[in-house]
Amino acid sequence: MHLRNLTEIPEFTLLTSITNPDQELHGLFASDLLSHVMGNAHEGDILITVLSNINVLGVASLLDLSAVVFTHNADVPEAVLRKATELGIALFRTKLPTAETVILLHNKGV
């Protein structure tokens, strides 16, 4: 599965543009604690979280994560959208809870 395929998932809304649509997606990491993300997520992972503050982007950028999916229809501040665009990080939002998002992506082969 590639990053652009995430835009074809009806439950997901793309909040930014995608700069690297052909990036392959290998793994998922779900957590709302940034130290857990920092210590355990792998390069290229999709981060699934309900946290939508600017620090999520800091961690995503430092770990070279492929995308961030905000669950539970989380509000994403304008500043976060601007920063994500600047850093080239793809952001998605879904109404689904975190666990269901993980299952959905897992079933699609991520």
């Binding site: 709302d32 940034l34 130290s35």
Partner: peptide, 15 residues
Amino acid sequence: ENGFGAGMGLPNIQA
């Protein structure tokens, strides 16, 4: 509220 404070900072640094 900003996603910190899990009590994992220093243990992560040590690791």
